[in-house]
Design a protein around this nucleic acid. Sequence first.
DNA 1: TCGCTGACAGATTTCAATATCTGTCAGACA
DNA 2: TGTCTGACAGATATTGAAATCTGTCAGCGA
Lengths: 197, 197
Amino acid sequence: MNEAVVLTPERILEATEDVLRRYGLTKATVVDVARALDVSHGSVYRHFPSKASLRDAVAKRWLDRANEPLCKLAAGSGPAPERLEKWLRTAFTIKQKKVCDDPEMFATYLALAQGAREVVEAYKDKQVDLIAKILSDGVAQGEFEIDDVKTTARAVFDATVRYHHPAHAEEWAKPECPSRIDALIALLLRGVRVCKH
Amino acid sequence: MNEAVVLTPERILEATEDVLRRYGLTKATVVDVARALDVSHGSVYRHFPSKASLRDAVAKRWLDRANEPLCKLAAGSGPAPERLEKWLRTAFTIKQKKVCDDPEMFATYLALAQGAREVVEAYKDKQVDLIAKILSDGVAQGEFEIDDVKTTARAVFDATVRYHHPAHAEEWAKPECPSRIDALIALLLRGVRVCKH
DNA sequence: TCGCTGACAGATTTCAATATCTGTCAGACA
DNA sequence: TGTCTGACAGATATTGAAATCTGTCAGCGA
C-alpha cells in the first residue's frame, strides 16, 4: 500500500463513521470498513481486537464530541444558578438537535450506545461530575445550599433523564415539551437554592 | 357451545392474559386465545374489532390494577410531604416488584405498553393528576409553596421517570439505586416545600 | 522484522418457499 | 333473530439452505 497513507486507528474510526452513516449500524460490516480504506479486513483487526471494540471506540468519539460544549460550560464562571440552567438546556438541545437533524443517524447512535455500556457509563459519570462542579461553585457563591454535592448532582442528572436519555427521544418533539422543561428546571433550581426569605 | 358459559369480553381478556403468560407476546395469537376459550377465532372478533384492540384492553386492565394502591394513597389524608414521598416510593416499588418477580412477564407488559400509546398516555395523565392532588393538599396545609400545581405535578412526574419508566428497568436492580432514589426524593421535596426559615 | 494479505472455520444473516395468522363474511344453528 | 362457525384472501411469520460475515493465522513482500 501507499506508504504516505498509513493505517492508523484514527483513520479506521473515520472510515467506520462514514460507513455507519452510509449503511446504518445493522448493515455496516468490518469488510465494508476495510473496503472503504482499501485494505483487507484482517488489517482492521490489527488495530481493533473485535468489531465490538471498534463500535465502542466510535461511540466514545461521538459522546466526547457531544460533551465538549458542556465541559466548557461547567468549567466557566458566573452565577451558578444561571450556569446550571444553561448547562441543562444545552445538554437537552444537543441531544434534541441530533434527533431532529438526522433521526436515522440518531437511531444508529442509540443502538451503538446500547451495545457500549461501559463507554456510556463513563460518559454519564463525567456528566454528573460536570453538574457537581457547577453545584459546588454555587455553594461557594452562597447561591446553593446542598448537603452532599456529588449525591445531589446525581439526583439532578437522574431527574432530567427524560430530556437527555435517548429512550425518551420521541417525546422531545412534542409541542408541550419546552414548557415541561421549564417547569422541571424551575423545580430543580428551587430544590438546590438557598432560601430567599 | 354450552349456554351456561357465554362468551364475554371479560372472559376473553382473562383467556388472553393466560395465553400471554404462557406463550409471551410475540407468540400469542388470536387463534390461541380462541382455542383456550374453545371457540372459533371469528367469535373473538365479535367482541374485539382487532388484535390491537384486544392488546390495548389487556394493557389497560394491567395498568389500572397496578394503579389502584396509588389512587388510594392520593385520595388519603395526612401531611402532604410524607404522602408524596410514600406515593413516589410506592410507585417505584410496584414497578420494581413486577420486574423482579417475573421479568419475562414484565417484558411482555413492556412490549404491550409500547404498542398501546393512547392507553399509556391516559395512564400517565392519571398519575400526574394523583400527584397534583397530593400537591394541592400540601398547599392547603401550608406545607408546600407552588405556583402552578398541575405543571409542578407534571415536573415531579417527569423528574422521576427514571424510576417508573420501564425503559430504565435494568437500572432498578443496581445496589446504588435506593440511595439515588432517596436523593432524588429529597431534592424534589425541597423543591416544593415552603421555606422553613 | 513487521505490517499486510487472503484463505479458512464457525457464526450469523439473507432469502425465498412454506406455513400460519389476521380479519371478513356468508351461512349454519338454536 | 342473533350468535357462532369455518372457509377464504391477503398479510405476516417460520424455516432451512445458501451467502456473507467475523475473527484467526500462516505466509508474502518490503
